[in-house]
C-alpha cells in the first residue's frame, strides 16, 4: 500500500501533520486550547483549500506539459466579474465561458504560434486586466454573486448537528473540488488524453512522431486550466459574495507552489495528482497556522519561501547535466 504513494506526497503529508502539531503545541501553550485539531477549524481550512486546490488542479495539467499559465489571476477575476455582472441563471455558464475562451486563446498561442507559454499567458493576463478595467471603470463591480453561486461555495448539504445550533458540515466548494479531482485523476490515468499529456510533457517531439496531435493536447490542457481557474473564480465570488479587482492575484504563486511541492516536475512529464492535493493542503495550513500565531507578514513570506526550497531540496532536485 505504502509503495503506491510516492515519496513527495508522503513527505508533504508528514509536513502537514508537523505543521498541525507545532500549531497545536503553540495554542495549548498560549490559549490552553487545541483549536487546530478541532473539526470546525479543519473543515473551515478544507473549504479555503478548495479554492486554491481548484486553481492548482488546472495548473498541474499545464505544468505536466512543461508549460505554465500566468493568466490565471485575471481569468479568476474576469470570470467572477462577468458572472456577477450577468447574474441570473446564466451567471455560471457565462463565467465558465470566459474560462473556455481564455483557454482557447492561450492554447492557440502556445500550440500554433509557439510563443513560450510563460510570456504568452502573461500577455493574455494583461489583456484580461485591461478588459476588466474597461468594463468596470477600475472599481469593484456593484453586482453581487447570485444565490446559486453562494450556495455552491458555502452550502453544506452534508452536515451533522453537534448541538448548540452548530453543525459540522462539508461545504459544497469542497465537494466540487472532490468531484473535479476525481474527474482529473480519471482523465490523467485512465484516458488516452491523460497519457498524451504525460507523453508530450516528457518529449513533445517524440509524442508528435508517435502520431499524437500534440497541438490539440496543448489546447485541451490550457482549456482545462482556464476552466478550473474560472470555476475557482465563481466559487470565490460566491464565498465572498462579490467579485473585485485583483481577486485572483493571491492564487497564482501559491498554486504553482502547491503543484511543485506536491512533486510535479516543473519541466513536465512527471507528477501525481495526489501530490497536488497534499501540496495545496500544506500551503493553506502553513498560511493559516502562521497567521494564527500572529506571525507578521514579513516572517510569513520568509517561512513560506524557506519551506518551498527545503521541501524541494529533499525531493525536487534535478539531475546534473553532464553531456
Amino acid at each position: 500500500m505504502i509503495k503506491s504513494i510516492d515519496r513527495p506526497t508522503l513527505i508533504a503529508s508528514g509536513f502537514c501533520v508537523a505543521i498541525l502539531i507545532a500549531g497545536t503545541i503553540y495554542t495549548l501553550y498560549t490559549q490552553g486550547t487545541a483549536s487546530f485539531i478541532e473539526p470546525t477549524y479543519l473543515l473551515q481550512q478544507l473549504k479555503i483549500a478548495a479554492f486554491l486546490g481548484t486553481v492548482a488542479a488546472g495548473m498541474m495539467v499545464v505544468i505536466l506539459l512543461g508549460h505554465i499559465d500566468l493568466s490565471v489571476p485575471w481569468t479568476i477575476a474576469a470570470s467572477a466579474m462577468i458572472a456577477t455582472a450577468v447574474g441570473g441563471p446564466w451567471a455560471i455558464p457565462v463565467g465558465l465561458g470566459v474560462g473556455l475562451a481564455v483557454g482557447l486563446i492561450n492554447g492557440i498561442g502556445v500550440a500554433f504560434l509557439r510563443v513560450p507559454s510563460m510570456i504568452f499567458t502573461l500577455g493574455v493576463n494583461a489583456v484580461l486586466r485591461g478588459l476588466m478595467v474597461m468594463l468596470t471603470g477600475g472599481f469593484a463591480p456593484q453586482s453581487s454573486a447570485t444565490p446559486i453561486m453562494s450556495w455552491l461555495a458555502n452550502g453544506e448539504p452534508l452536515s451533522v448537528p453537534i448541538g448548540g445550533g452548530h453543525t459540522w458540515g462539508i461545504a459544497n466548494a469542497v465537494l466540487m473540488w472532490a468531484l473535479l479531482s476525481a474527474a482529473l485523476v480519471f482523465m490523467l490515468t485512465r484516458t488516452p488524453f491523460g497519457r498524451y499529456i504525460y507523453a508530450a510533457g516528457n518529449r513533445e517531439a517524440a509524442a508528435y512522431l508517435s502520431g499524437i496531435n500534440t497541438r490539440l493536447v496543448l489546447i485541451g490542457s490550457f482549456v482545462i486550466c482556464s476552466l478550473c481557474a474560472s470555476m475557482a473564480g465563481l466559487l470565490i465570488a460566491g464565498y465572498t459574495s462579490k467579485a473585485f479587482q485583483a481577486m485572483g492575484d493571491a492564487y497564482l504563486l501559491p498554486a504553482i507552489a502547491a503543484v511543485v511541492v506536491g512533486g510535479t516536475n516543473i519541466l513536465g512529464g512527471q507528477g501525481k495528482y495526489s501530490g497536488t492535493v497534499v501540496g495545496t493542503i500544506l500551503i493553506v495550513l502553513l498560511q493559516s497556522v502562521l497567521s494564527v500565531m500572529q506571525m507578521p507578514e514579513a516572517g510569513r513570506q520568509i517561512i513560506y519561501g524557506v519551506v518551498i526550497i527545503s521541501m524541494l531540496l529533499v525531493y525536487g532536485r534535478s539531475k546534473a547535466i553532464r553531456g
Partner: peptide, 10 residues
Amino acid sequence: RIQPIIATLA
C-alpha cells in the same frame, strides 16, 4: 539543482 523558475519564486 532546483529549477530556476521555482527556486527564484521561493
